[in-house]
């Protein structure tokens, strides 16, 4: 039984790590490859989660929209589409401007989405959230262990597909343009590239991936509420990408698993060691630690655990320094 316990914990851990991994891959195409600073990750993740929740969930008495009870794959598809639309709107307004404005605007969108989730009861049921969301393939077996193992397979398949697709497009001429924009926007412009359009594509692709991750999360947990999408989530993803290595998709996955392990282990440690009176303080200390890791990485190892591979050409191997 001991073995089964460890196995089921491991599966649960990996499922959660895969939500982070998928979101990190989405951020990597924005931040790692194109140099776009998206501070609204939690918002895009929430849009995906709520879209799938509304599409696949049951009909609630108090909402005037939703409860379509669609099959889960359609919920995921809807999450992709809706997040892409939101990202296109935001990107269209802000991607022509300086990078600071994108940071501020995406921060604003995350705050606004949080407000909508909290207050638009007719759609989101407010703080009470959406519940009883269906979990795919769960009707195949009675055992929660098998259920979760199947869900892990779905997650791995989705991540594998997205990873493969992103690696393909990032190695194509299209991906080279993204890196060119990141390194020197004006040089890319001089080569006749429509910098704005490339940025918009990278931004929308990355955000839609985050939305898909949100949908995977919603249909696994079966219950979502506004407190699942706090700004701390955004920082966690950034730390994962930066620890793993910006501009390296494998790094994003490794960083996600490592940082999620650190996060879970510190949680268990606090629960075991700290007396109940100081639990909230200890939780705050843990978040301070995440911030500290981020700042230390930026200072001492900005390339992360797995640095970006230079795949362009021999000339591309020369490290281009001092962008901007």
């Amino acid at each position: 039984m001991e073995f089964l316990g460890i196995l089921s914990f491991l599966i649960f851990f990996l499922i959660q790590a895969s939500f982070f991994s998928l979101t990190s891959i989405g951020l990597n195409i924005q931040w790692g490859f194109t140099g776009l600073f998206n501070v609204g990750i939690a918002g895009f993740f929430a849009v995906g989660a709520y879209t799938s929740g509304i599409m696949t969930g049951p009909r609630y008495a108090e909402t005037w929209f939703g409860g379509f009870g669609l099959p889960v794959p359609l919920g995921f598809l809807a999450a992709l589409i809706v997040t892409a639309i939101v990202a296109t709107l935001i990107g269209y307004i802000t991607l022509r401007l300086r990078e600071d404005f994108l940071a501020i605007s995406t921060f604003g969108i995350a705050v606004s989405i949080q407000l909508v989730a909290n207050n638009l009861d007719e759609l989101t049921r407010g703080p009470e959230g959406l519940y009883s969301l269906p979990k795919p393939l769960s009707e195949l077996s009675e055992s929660p262990l098998v259920d979760n193992a199947l869900y892990l397979l779905i997650c791995v398949a989705v991540i594998g597909l997205v990873y493969w697709a992103f690696e393909r497009i990032l190695r194509s001429p299209w991906g080279r343009v993204l890196r060119a924009i990141r390194e020197d926007e004006h040089a890319a412009m001089a080569m006749g590239k429509n910098v704005f359009l490339f940025r918009l594509q990278a931004f929308v692709l990355g955000s839609a991936t985050m939305g898909l991750a949100g949908a995977l999360y919603a249909n696994f947990i079966g219950f979502i509420s506004p407190t699942d999408f706090l700004p701390i989530f955004t920082i966690q993803i950034f730390v994962m990408v930066i620890v793993g290595g910006s501009g390296n998709n494998l790094g994003a996955i490794v960083g996600s698993v490592v940082m999620w392990a650190v996060w879970s282990a510190s949680d268990s440690l606090i629960a075991a060691v700290v007396s109940p009176d100081f639990q909230t303080q200890a939780a705050a200390a843990r978040i301070v630690l995440i911030g500290l890791i981020l700042v230390l990485m930026l200072l001492y190892r900005p390339q992360g655990l797995l640095p970006e591979k230079h795949v362009v050409s021999a000339a591309g191997r020369m490290k281009l320094k001092g962008e901007d």
Binding site: E99, P231, I235, I287, G291, L292, L298
Partner: peptide, 10 residues
């Protein structure tokens, strides 16, 4: 900005 964001959280 990223560093500031991390410091803000801290």
């Amino acid at each position: 900005i990223m560093a500031a964001f991390g410091l803000s959280l801290m």
